[in-house]
Simulated assay, not measured.
Amino acid sequence: MTIEQTLLADDVRVRIFKALADGTRLQIIRTLKESGVEMNCGEVGEKCEASKSNASYHFRTLREAGLITVRKEAQTKYIHLNVETFDSYLPGFLSSI
């Protein structure tokens, strides 16, 4: 691995750890993991007891870190875990929560 690749991977790790350093975002990850399927943003927000604007902020942070993906269908946004990111950077993390 070159120095540039190492620095790029470290940048990704920093974004991931910053995204996971919040109780609400951990709860979102746990909720999505336990459901096993994609959920709409409103469902996740309700289960995590987050307001729409607060949940939106947390979803954006998780998406930018590559931990979730968002799919829009008409007016509804659906989110699900990006398991590949967890497997690459945090193997075993999902089974620990």
Rank of each mutant, 00 (worst) to 15 (best):
V83F: 06
S53G: 09
D11F: 08
M1R: 05
Y78P: 06
A21N: 14
S88F: 02
N40K: 08
R60M: 04
S95G: 00
H58R: 13
G92D: 01
T69H: 12
L81C: 00
K47M: 11
D87L: 14
V83L: 10
S95Q: 10
V37T: 12
T6I: 13
E84Q: 05
A19D: 08
A55E: 03
N40Y: 03
R71H: 09
Q75P: 00
A55Q: 03
A9L: 10
V37Y: 06
C41Y: 09
E38T: 11
L7Q: 05
T6F: 06
Y57G: 01
I79N: 01
T6M: 07
S51G: 15
F93Y: 13
G66C: 07
L62V: 01
S96I: 07
L62P: 01
L67G: 03
I68G: 01
D10A: 14
R13Q: 10
I29F: 07
L20E: 04
M1T: 15
L62T: 03
P91A: 06
I29V: 12
N40G: 10
A65E: 03
Q27A: 12
A21H: 15
T76D: 03
T85Q: 15
V12N: 08
K52R: 14
S95I: 09
K77G: 04
G23A: 12
G92N: 00
L90M: 07
I97S: 01
K72P: 00
H58I: 02
C41D: 10
R60E: 02
